[in-house]
Design a protein around this nucleic acid. Sequence first.
DNA 1: CAATTTTGTATGTTGATTGAACTTATTCCG
DNA 2: CGGAATAAGTTCAATCAACATACAAAATTG
Lengths: 420, 420
Amino acid sequence: MAVSSPVTTAVPARQRSLRDHNLGIALRQVAHSPEPVSRADIAAATGLTRSTASTLVDALLARRLVREVEPVAASGAGRPATGLVLDADGAAGIGLEVNVDYLAACVVDLTGAVRHRSVVLGDQRGRPPEAVLAELADLAAAALGTAQRRGLPVGGATIAVPGLVEAPDGLLRLAPNLGWHDLDVLAVVRADGRLAGLPLSIDNEANLAALGEMYSGGAGGADSFVALSGEIGVGAGIVLDGRLFRGTHGWGGEIGHLAIRPDGPPCSCGARGCLEQMAGQEAILRAAGLTNRAGTTMAGQPGVDRLVELAESGRPDLLAALDEAGSALGVAVAGVINLIDVGTVVLGGLYAALAPWIAPPVEREIAGRVLAHRWAPVTVTVSGLGGDAAIRGGAGAVVQRVLDEPATRWSPLRTSRTLA
Amino acid sequence: MAVSSPVTTAVPARQRSLRDHNLGIALRQVAHSPEPVSRADIAAATGLTRSTASTLVDALLARRLVREVEPVAASGAGRPATGLVLDADGAAGIGLEVNVDYLAACVVDLTGAVRHRSVVLGDQRGRPPEAVLAELADLAAAALGTAQRRGLPVGGATIAVPGLVEAPDGLLRLAPNLGWHDLDVLAVVRADGRLAGLPLSIDNEANLAALGEMYSGGAGGADSFVALSGEIGVGAGIVLDGRLFRGTHGWGGEIGHLAIRPDGPPCSCGARGCLEQMAGQEAILRAAGLTNRAGTTMAGQPGVDRLVELAESGRPDLLAALDEAGSALGVAVAGVINLIDVGTVVLGGLYAALAPWIAPPVEREIAGRVLAHRWAPVTVTVSGLGGDAAIRGGAGAVVQRVLDEPATRWSPLRTSRTLA
DNA sequence: CAATTTTGTATGTTGATTGAACTTATTCCG
DNA sequence: CGGAATAAGTTCAATCAACATACAAAATTG
């Protein structure tokens, strides 16, 4: 038998691929630099010749992905360079989110700026999916309207959901905390009609939140990290070499069901001692004696703000519960690091708000359990995005696709600028 | 701030890259097919034109990577096709291994056939690293000699070690079961001199064993899987999309120190309740009451063969210990699957030999703990390579590099065929 | 034995990068 | 103040790899 890796989709490189690849490189040079770059800078940084860089830039200008700015005040002799920056009106993405207690939407432009944002608070549990998604479509239509009024060509929208999303088709297999299962969210939203023609995709909320952290610099510039997303459930988005890791079926990052105590309390997933039962929001409330009824969650429970308030006031049983939860989380995270060897962990969602109490036990467990900790200390950072991480990541993912492959037709919804 | 992924090494595509890429595609077409393929087959399978495929094949012939064989008996009309197969004498790789109780070496050719193999049994613990590596160099020199006598150009050698290997330089940070630490194995072996000019690399034993499984089809053709490597320690090699996953520093796959019972027995790593303390070889012996002295390992303990014998005889305390170990292993594996979503697990090393008793509890825990198990059942397979997995993987990795990038100079040690 | 079919090769075209002029715009320096 | 130096950006022929088409080669089919 031949030594060979399993069948790789053999896509041959045509001459066009060359141009596509180099277009992406040139565009990323512009995107990465905080200041305007010149054609000559691109040539120097990439190793391409100035003439090639010029040709590529012309193509990017024609696609409205970059824009020329006034020559920067020159430092030294020679003809001053024409500055190139990303065109803020060149392409935009829409991020949408359905979560247990809110719906949200935003528009992000090519430069990463948030051009529109809207959030509707409200418990979605028990509502029929069609009603929830109709309301989400309202938000989406409003976001699209804003983009159109501002002349932004929208490249697509990404929907974040708190559940298992199957890889190829985007079927939502299970969203335990919403009570949804086997639902084709994209089809329902498309059926609404108002987003006709807009490429839609869907992903797990924790995955998109991790992207949001990366785009906003929350991971401290690391290109491989794990972003923890604590809400009712506990999720993790894994980013490796700047790319989201989804796994074979798209179900990677289900850290919430790692076994912390294999014979511990039963979990809704059927197993025992899952992290979610030790460090999820309800577990913390339960351990601190803050639930109305043991085990069941009621609307009207203390929210995150109230939880922070109580912790700040030094309530002992809550502090003990937070330390316990942080320890469990730390054990899980240490396992993740031993397994996939990332150097950065981002605390997001609930854990960001509660970071002053959660981070220390997490760091303690990491220090004690990560085998390679003495050679490569692990950095624990705290998200600054709050609940916006997933929509920012979803919108950013649309924009990122344009940055990654500027040559492929990214089907912009060409908008005729209407009078406001 | 711009929406952008962190700095990607911007390597521009020249026209040469096109050719390189397509050469690789063409070569892999030959490698993947169990039967000879024609130039026309390559064109049809890849979408390249027949003329381009012809040009590429000419280049591969010139590099001695493929060989023409007699036209296959034609089925149907038309001119019969000239068969193309990998040239078994085109390129070869050497695999080397230092493990706790043996040293090994092998030579694998371009077709994946093992052309040489040698194993020296013996406990390496406590021996000075220089002495051990000198003996390994003996094995390597013998392997190289065999290759040279047979006219095989050797592309390099890979050394497998049971420990943490740091990514860029190959420094062996820690090999707990050998008692080695912070050792530059490659430098010591190079200093020996007999392998002068041969590109050397080094990797974790479990990682290379996983590659060995992939090359030999042990993962059932899956391109993403986890290969468990049970010996004194417990390791895992993670293969994603046909590529070994090493992590940021090269320390991925340290499954042996996942916490199964966070407050369980202390581990040599400093933490508590690590998998290695529940499912490692010594833990099994201890739980079955088969160690001479509690906790310490002695040469002269029951070996793997004896263990299998005792299990087959139905010794109750051993069967209980194996079930216990399998459960712990299953809990860990279930966690890994929830995290990285692979569909196949390969039991290797100790666990392959003990598979009849280890596999059932592993499968039981997977069924109970993997969140997505009902939609995508996990396959558990058993390695057929025994202790050879790592050397096969190491040698195969050298060969694979040639197959992946046939255009890059893979510095063959051109051997003048000497008279035997 | 001629028609058909398929393989493999030869030849001119297309598209993208290169390298070497060349133009343009600015600073440096006498 | 003005020429030299310097750097940015453009132009154009050369090169290289893939493509399209035509053609030669070697078998089967009727």
